[in-house]
Amino acid sequence: MEWEVITNSETFIMTIRLIIAAALGGLVGVEREFHQHPAGFRTHLLVSVGSCLIMLLAFYGFQNYISGHNPETINFDPSRLAAYVVSGIGFLGAGTILVQGYTVRGLTTAASIWVVAGIGLTVGAGMYLPAIITTIIVILSLFLLGKIDFGFLMKRKKRFIYLVVEEGKSPLSNLIKVVESYSIEVKGIKTEKQKLFNDKSMIEYRLYVEYEDKEAIIYLADHLNKDEFVHQVYLDGK
Rank of each mutant, 00 (worst) to 15 (best):
136 I>H: 10
110 A>K: 05
117 A>K: 08
52 C>Q: 06
118 G>Y: 06
56 L>M: 13
28 V>N: 03
87 S>Y: 02
72 E>C: 06
149 D>Q: 14
146 G>V: 04
63 Q>N: 14
51 S>I: 03
148 I>Q: 09
32 R>C: 00
126 G>V: 11
129 L>V: 15
81 L>H: 02
96 T>C: 11
90 G>I: 13
95 G>S: 10
29 G>P: 00
52 C>P: 09
48 S>Q: 06
90 G>F: 03
114 W>H: 06
149 D>Y: 11
129 L>I: 15
103 T>A: 15
120 G>E: 03
43 T>L: 01
84 Y>L: 13
60 Y>M: 07
118 G>D: 04
53 L>F: 15
20 I>N: 04
109 T>F: 03
30 V>W: 01
51 S>P: 05
132 I>A: 13
111 A>V: 05
32 R>G: 00
40 G>Q: 00
132 I>S: 05
99 V>H: 11
28 V>G: 02
123 V>G: 05
53 L>Y: 07
66 I>D: 07
109 T>E: 02
139 I>W: 02
59 F>V: 13
29 G>W: 00
102 Y>Q: 14
72 E>Y: 13
37 H>A: 07
132 I>G: 06
133 I>P: 10
79 S>E: 09
19 I>M: 14
50 G>Y: 02
31 E>W: 00
28 V>S: 01
37 H>D: 10
105 R>M: 07
126 G>L: 11
80 R>K: 15
149 D>E: 15
100 Q>C: 11
23 A>P: 01
69 H>R: 13
113 I>T: 02
29 G>I: 00
30 V>L: 14
42 R>K: 12
19 I>S: 13
91 F>C: 10
149 D>I: 11
44 H>G: 01
66 I>C: 05
18 L>F: 05
14 M>L: 08
81 L>R: 03
124 G>C: 03
17 R>V: 07
76 F>Y: 15
32 R>K: 03
146 G>I: 02
30 V>M: 08
21 A>Y: 04
58 A>Y: 10
31 E>M: 01
81 L>C: 04
91 F>H: 09
130 P>E: 12
110 A>F: 04
87 S>M: 04
74 I>A: 11
50 G>R: 03
27 L>A: 08
138 V>M: 09
89 I>Y: 04
68 G>N: 13
116 V>G: 05
34 F>K: 08
28 V>T: 13
41 F>K: 00
17 R>D: 08
80 R>F: 14
117 A>E: 09
82 A>P: 11
63 Q>T: 14
89 I>G: 01
97 I>K: 03
49 V>S: 02
32 R>H: 00
127 M>P: 01
48 S>P: 11
85 V>D: 03
88 G>K: 10
74 I>S: 10
111 A>P: 05
109 T>P: 02
92 L>D: 07
94 A>F: 12
92 L>M: 14
64 N>Q: 15
61 G>R: 06
13 I>C: 03
115 V>T: 15
123 V>F: 07
101 G>W: 08
62 F>W: 11
137 I>G: 15
99 V>C: 04
69 H>E: 12
116 V>Y: 01
134 T>I: 12
142 L>V: 05
20 I>W: 07
128 Y>W: 07
43 T>E: 01
143 F>A: 14
56 L>W: 10
148 I>N: 08
33 E>R: 00
27 L>W: 00
92 L>C: 07
40 G>P: 00
74 I>K: 08
88 G>D: 09
31 E>C: 01
15 T>M: 15
147 K>H: 12
39 A>L: 03
